[in-house]
C-alpha cells in the first residue's frame, strides 16, 4: 500500500549488537541531549506579565454584536443553535414591542441567549451561520471560574458594550480580529 505520508518509520527487528545491548552508549547519548537542552533558551513567556500576540485566525469568546446605533443585531432566528456542533447555544425569542426600537434592530429579538462555554469548541460555525452578523467570535478567552454554572454565559455576559455609551469598551470587546482574512463570501 502506498504510504499516505512520508513520515512512516520502519521498525527494525534485527538482533542488536553487543554494543547496543549494553545500552550505556545510548543512555549517555540521551543524557547528552538532555544536557544540551539545559543551555537552550527557554521559549517560555512569563504569562501575566508578558502576553503573546494572538494569531490572525484566533477565535475567542463569542459576543453578541450591536449595530452602530447600539441596537442588538440578533433576531433569534436560531440558525446559530442549529449550526453549533456542540449544541452549546440555547435561546428564547420575543417580539419587539412598541418603544423598543432603539434596543433591537429587528422585530424579533432574543430574550434569552445562553452559550455553555464548557461545551463550546470555538469552531466559529455560529458566526458563519449568522445572517445578521450578530454572533461574533472575539479575541478574549474564558475566565476561570469556581462553579460550572459560571460557564453558562447569558446574554448579559455576551452582549457587547454599547458603542455609543462606551465606545472604548466596545472597541476593545470587538477587538481587531480579522474575520476570514482570505474571505468566504457572505460578508455584508
Amino acid at each position: 500500500m502506498e504510504p499516505l505520508t512520508n513520515r512512516i518509520e520502519h521498525v527494525s527487528r534485527k538482533q542488536m549488537s553487543f554494543w547496543e545491548k549494553i545500552y550505556l552508549p545510548a543512555v549517555l547519548k540521551g543524557m547528552g541531549i538532555t544536557f544540551r537542552h539545559m543551555f537552550k533558551k527557554p521559549p517560555t513567556i512569563k504569562y501575566p506579565e508578558k502576553k503573546r500576540v494572538f494569531s490572525p485566525v484566533f477565535r475567542g469568546l463569542q459576543i453578541l454584536n450591536r449595530d452602530a446605533e447600539g441596537r442588538e443585531n440578533c433576531t433569534a432566528c436560531g440558525l446559530c443553535a442549529v449550526a453549533c456542533p456542540a449544541e452549546a447555544i440555547t435561546m428564547e425569542a420575543a417580539e419587539r414591542k412598541a418603544g423598543e426600537e432603539h434596543l433591537y434592530r429587528e422585530e424579533k429579538y432574543a430574550a434569552k441567549y445562553e452559550i455553555n462555554m464548557l461545551r463550546c469548541i470555538f469552531c466559529g460555525l455560529c458566526e458563519e451561520a449568522c445572517p445578521k452578523d450578530a454572533v461574533y467570535l472575539s479575541e478574549t478567552v474564558a475566565q476561570a471560574n469556581f462553579a460550572r454554572k459560571g460557564f453558562i454565559y447569558g446574554k448579559e455576559d455576551l452582549l457587547i458594550p454599547h458603542p455609543l455609551k462606551d465606545p472604548e469598551a466596545f472597541a476593545k470587546a470587538k477587538g481587531s480580529r480579522i474575520k476570514h482574512p482570505e474571505g468566504h463570501g457572505n460578508e455584508h
Binding site: T34, H37, K41, P42
Partner: peptide, 10 residues
C-alpha cells in the same frame, strides 16, 4: 528546576 531546564522551561 533541572527538569525545567532540560525541557527548555524556566
Amino acid at each position: 528546576k533541572v527538569a525545567a531546564f532540560m525541557q527548555d522551561r524556566i
